[in-house]
Structures are given as structure tokens and as C-alpha cells.
């Protein structure tokens, strides 16, 4: 934990310095007429002081005899899963515009159901299609959410059917 605390407080100190400096640039004003940067300066200074204090305490604290360096993620399999899940989320945000909602959702669900703890192809496909249909009906048709259309939109599906 010691290393994590040192890294995180260092980051917070840098952030606090940036916020305080930006606050001064925006205008601290005076006590009787606080400017737009007034709270930025005060909260930046408070964050910086707290982070510096914690950094100092952690730095001075000796490593406990029973304290074992904790791994960020318990096993490498976990790291892979977290990475793949994050990648799927990023891909969803990137592809939503060009591919449209139904296709992106289908790909997203299929990827997560097949990759993380692989389900059978049939089950993964059935669940993904059911989810897409349900989401389109609830969000797009019923709640009127304006999703990006893409090549396979609800209108094209309607045309295929009718």
C-alpha cells in the first residue's frame, strides 16, 4: 500500500498545483469580492496540503514487518479480463457512431459473452440478439432515445420485414 500511497499523493499534489495556478490565472479576486478562481485556489491548496501531509506520513512510515507488497491485480488472468472489458467499452464508444446502435450492441454483447468466460455460441448469440431487440424496443421505440442509426437501423429492419 505504501507505494500506491506515494504514487497517488504525488499525482494529487501535481493536480492541486495545476488547479491552484489555474485558479490564480482565472482570478482569485478579493475576500470581499471573490473571483471565478477563488474556490479553485482554496480547494487546490487544501488538496495539495492534504496530499503533501499524507505523502510525508507515508514516506516517514517504516515498512511494517508483516506488510507484503500487494499486487495490483491478484492474478494475470484478472488483468487480462479487466483489459478486455475496458477494451470492449472503448470499442463501443468508438463504433457507436459509424456502426449504429443495433450492430454495436450485438458485437459488444457477443464479445463479452464469448471472451470473458466463454459461453456456448448458441447461448451467446441468442442472448445478444434478445438484448438488442429488447433495448431497441424499450429505449429506441418506447423511450425515443435517438441512437446513431448506422447501416442496420430500426428503419432498415422494418423495411426488411414489411
Amino acid at each position: 500500500m505504501r507505494r500506491y500511497d506515494l504514487v497517488s499523493t504525488l499525482f494529487l499534489m501535481v493536480l492541486a498545483a495545476y488547479v491552484s495556478a489555474s485558479g490564480f490565472r482565472l482570478g482569485f479576486g478579493e475576500w470581499r469580492e471573490p473571483g471565478p478562481g477563488f474556490l479553485a485556489v482554496l480547494s487546490g491548496l487544501a488538496l495539495g496540503a492534504l496530499a503533501a501531509f499524507w505523502f510525508g506520513m507515508t514516506f516517514a512510515k517504516p515498512q511494517g514487518p508483516g506488510e507484503i507488497a500487494r499486487r495490483f491485480i491478484a492474478d494475470t488472468g484478472g488483468l487480462r479480463i479487466v483489459g478486455l472489458t475496458a477494451a470492449a467499452l472503448i470499442a463501443f464508444a468508438l463504433l457507436l457512431g459509424p456502426l449504429g446502435f443495433p450492430l454495436t450492441t450485438l458485437a459488444f454483447m457477443m464479445f463479452l459473452l464469448r471472451v470473458i468466460e466463454p459461453q456456448r455460441w448458441g447461448l451467446a448469440l441468442a442472448l445478444s440478439v434478445a438484448t438488442v431487440v429488447l433495448c431497441v424496443v424499450v429505449f429506441q421505440v418506447w423511450l425515443q432515445v435517438q441512437f446513431p442509426e448506422g447501416p442496420v437501423s430500426i428503419h432498415t429492419i422494418r423495411k426488411w420485414i414489411f
Binding site: 472489458t85 470492449a88 467499452l89 463501443f92 464508444a93 457507436l96 457512431g97 450492441t105 459488444f108 454483447m109 463479452l112 459473452l113 470473458i116 468466460e117 459461453q119 442472448l127 438484448t131 433495448c135 429505449f139 423511450l143 432515445v145 435517438q146 441512437f147
Partner: peptide, 24 residues
Amino acid sequence: PYPILFPLILLFCLIGVYSVNNSV
């Protein structure tokens, strides 16, 4: 099983947050 549940939770987050302002 959680491996079936979590993609749905994530999708719900994505749709939910998009639907606020229709913004990526």
C-alpha cells in the same frame, strides 16, 4: 451466473449515460 449478468450491467450503463443528452 455473473459472466452473463455483467455485460448487461455494462450495456445498461452505456445506454443510460448516452440517453441523457444523446451524446457519445
